[in-house]
């Protein structure tokens, strides 16, 4: 991949909060002109990564670049080329929608008032509506309008679907797709909604406990994850025999295995445990969830549900 084709680049990016590592040696490239989805469970380090990328938080170690500029010294000019939608669609409650537009217009030279007005109309928000008086979904709409109307080269979205109804969510995804098609725009979207990822993203990055586990094209990722179903006892001893095992999940008498980069060696190892084991077609959701499931938590929830039954 050529250097100038990278919109976001991190090298060994590490951030500690006290003794706790929120991000560990994260090395990631987000190519220009593509939509990359950043996926991870709550507290995985996604928002920390975005704050580091935008220079809102200094790293403990490592570095990050945004559009070729060091993230800790982003110039105002670079910032105007980057749109950022913060988690929770934060807006100052005292503001009217038109005040929000004014705030952006004065500091983003490529401000698109027409787009902003259209989006407000779509979300049914009057320019004179005060932010604290509109619904959560409408606030999300204003927030999105404020971000998209800056006409950014790089769009960084932190959970943009939060608070949106299905219609608005669909509109958002379509809007982002249309946006991405214009002039090689880059989008880094952080989301928990895997449907949106499937519809929207070219690439996927999975962060778990501050570590980057996946950074790949979406189809390549699907291809490189395999699944088996077997009807046999499966414990730590058996797990140690399967290289690349991501997750094993017990449902009644069956065990579902998810494995990274399965090959003939994997096949042999699985068959050795259970001769009746058979390959299973995995959806993107299955594959991603395998990475995200914190073992202890899921185990305890299953146990709890089992006890209730």
């Amino acid at each position: 991949m050529r250097e100038d084709k990278i919109a976001i680049r991190t090298r060994g990016l590490t951030r500690y909060f006290g003794q706790k590592a929120a991000l560990r040696s994260l090395t990631l490239d987000v190519p220009r002109g593509q939509v990359s989805a950043l996926v991870g469970h709550n507290g995985a380090g996604k928002t920390t990564l975005i704050r580091l990328l935008l220079g809102l938080l200094p790293p403990t170690r490592g570095c990050a670049e945004l559009l070729g500029c060091d993230s800790q010294s982003l110039t105002p000019e670079v910032r105007t080329r980057v749109g950022y939608l913060a988690e929770g669609h934060f807006l100052w409650g005292w503001m009217k929608a038109r005040d929000a537009a004014r705030l952006q217009r004065e500091t983003f030279p490529r401000w698109d008032q027409h787009l902003f007005d259209s989006m407000l109309k779509f979300f049914g928000v009057s320019p004179d509506s005060r932010v604290r008086q509109i619904s959560r979904g409408q606030r999300a709409g204003v927030s999105l309008a404020m971000t998209l109307a800056t006409d950014p080269e790089l769009l960084v979205l932190d959970d943009p679907s939060m608070g949106l109804d299905p219609v608005a969510r669909r509109a958002l995804v379509e809007g982002l797709l249309a946006f991405a098609r214009r002039d090689d725009r880059t989008i880094l979207v952080c989301t928990h909604l895997l449907d949106d990822v499937e519809r929207l993203a070219d690439r996927i990055a999975i962060v778990s406990s501050g570590r980057l586990l996946v950074d790949s094209g979406l189809s390549e990722f699907r291809d490189r994850i395999g699944g088996w179903t077997l009807e046999a006892e499966f414990g730590a001893q058996q797990a140690a025999q399967i290289p690349g095992l991501i997750d094993s999940r017990q449902t009644r008498e069956r065990t579902h295995l998810v494995v990274a980069d399965p090959d003939s060696e994997t096949e042999t190892a699985v068959q050795r445990i259970s001769g009746t084991a058979r390959r299973e077609e995995l959806t993107l959701e299955d594959a991603v969830l395998a990475y995200l499931r914190p073992a202890a938590m899921v185990g305890s929830i299953s146990d709890a549900l089992e006890n209730v039954r």
Partner: peptide, 14 residues
């Protein structure tokens, strides 16, 4: 709040 600080600072000013 990180989101508030981001909205304040992430714009075309130093």
């Amino acid at each position: 709040r990180p989101a508030a600080r981001a909205l304040l600072l992430h714009r075309g000013i130093t």
